[in-house]
Amino acid sequence: MCVGLSARVVSIEDGTALIDASGAKRKVSADLIDDLEPGDYVMVHAGVAIAKITETDADESRKIMESLDGIG
């Protein structure tokens, strides 16, 4: 239901973050994330940063697959 865009935070000012996704830049609301800093990666939806991203999808998937060993 929701196109999410993974983007890097370039700068933050007054609750607004400038984000960069492969060179496409836009200002989005940073109101929903308290401790946002330049260099963080965020998931952006409809002009709002909705969550901080903590690792790459490859690392995440590897850990989840490792956790499956012995199940099923």
């Binding site: 999410g4 989840i64 499956l68």
Partner: peptide
């Protein structure tokens, strides 16, 4: 893949496969 593995037991299950977000 997680759904396939966790379905094997026949018990209802939940898993967060998107913890990075």
């Amino acid at each position: 893949a997680v759904i396939i593995r966790l379905s094997a037991s026949g018990e209802p299950f939940f898993r967060n496969c998107y913890p990075r977000v």
